[in-house]
Design a protein around this nucleic acid. Structure first.
Lengths: 198, 198
DNA sequence: GCTAGAAACGAACGATCGTACTATTAATGG
DNA sequence: CCATTAATAGTACGATCGTTCGTTTCTAGC
């Protein structure tokens, strides 16, 4: 890797953290340059606009997410192990960063600001929700989940648990948040296995 | 109401909308003044800092929320009607504003920015989650929900549904979002009534 | 209808924003 | 090792940020 690409990656790494905490808009090029002990213009030269910087931050976070979550989850055997890996890997992913999951923060920040950055985020979230549904589908196919399970609905319910957990952990700093989301997830598994009651 | 209070309220109204869309930090006093056809300094004089403005925005939104959601929900008879009112009133509340629910947007924005604004938001979200749990409790007491239901967990599961719905509606603009969250909510009711399967 | 006080304004502050240039330093391939 | 290119720094621009201050316009109570 050339020197330029090395610094560029280092910038994107720190920028990702910063953006998770203060937002993609709240993050400032001057502040970021200070953090990295380099000049504003030297940093800016790597990207030619703040929007381009934001786009590359997102792409970089996607890479990290694929590496830390998606790949290991898809390597787990389909069915129960994969569904459990989905949960555990995601918990580790969000726990490994002080501000929580970058995509959660960015998605809620930009959901009302039209533009290419929002569009990119939206397409990733769509993909992610489809991935979750497919993972649930792998559990249906293997008979771990019941056959009539609506995997799309399952994906949103699962995601809802994670979002509520983000709030309880990040905003409320609720020490009960982690055990609670574990219990909720176990119950989600239980009721996805059994035939629908009622 | 005096002239001053009238404009102050009008400012807070518009500021609430703006803050929902671009964030409490992204919202700017100059932009807000332009929107309201008044001078930056004239507007600023009502609050003596941006932080004070943000605090008053939150307080005003709380008033609106109590009026539009909490009061009517608590007026509904305890048990099933109240639980359903909780759902319907909240849907109306978030649908009535272009950027969705103010508190959802603000909570995710400020969850990593220490300070009095964050603290105020956190205390409100705690109250809100407790209210939800109490409403579930009213359904338990009346025998509509099963006796061994964990109302705290129920509150977070319910809230998770709403957060996933916010994302699907606001970021993804998914037309299936509304019918899906209705189905999910009905299933939540069903399984809260029946004895736990497994 | 006059007057005291409240409310709104205009101009300006220093700071910082994103971005554009030019100059300087560092890395790299022949 | 030298020449070329890439990477970083420096400086400055116009715009806007939150905030202050002094002035003007309006509102309310007597």
């Amino acid at each position: 890797m050339s020197k330029g690409n090395a610094t560029r990656t280092a910038i994107l790494e720190r920028a990702g953290q910063l953006a998770t905490e203060v937002g993609l808009e709240g993050m400032t090029i001057g502040r970021l340059a200070d953090d990295l002990d380099m000049s504003k213009s030297g940093l800016f030269a790597h990207f030619r606009s703040k929007e381009e910087l934001q786009m590359q931050i997102i792409e970089r976070q996607r890479e990290r997410f694929v590496e830390a979550v998606i790949t290991p989850v898809l390597q787990a055997p389909g069915g129960e192990p994969r569904v459990r890996a989905l949960f555990e890997r995601w918990l580790e992913w969000r726990g490994s960063q002080p501000g929580g999951c970058f995509f959660t923060a960015a998605s809620f920040e930009l959901d009302d600001r039209p533009g290419p950055v929002r569009d990119l985020l939206a397409s990733m979230q769509r993909e992610w929700l489809e991935s979750i549904a497919r993972i649930a589908g792998s559990a249906v196919k293997r008979g771990y989940f019941r056959a009539d399970l609506d995997t799309d609905e399952w994906a949103h319910e699962y995601y809802g648990l994670m979002l509520a957990y983000h709030l309880a952990e990040q905003l409320l700093r609720d020490p009960k948040a982690a055990p609670r989301v574990r219990r909720s997830f176990e119950q989600l598994l239980t009721r996805s296995r059994a035939a629908a009651a009622a």
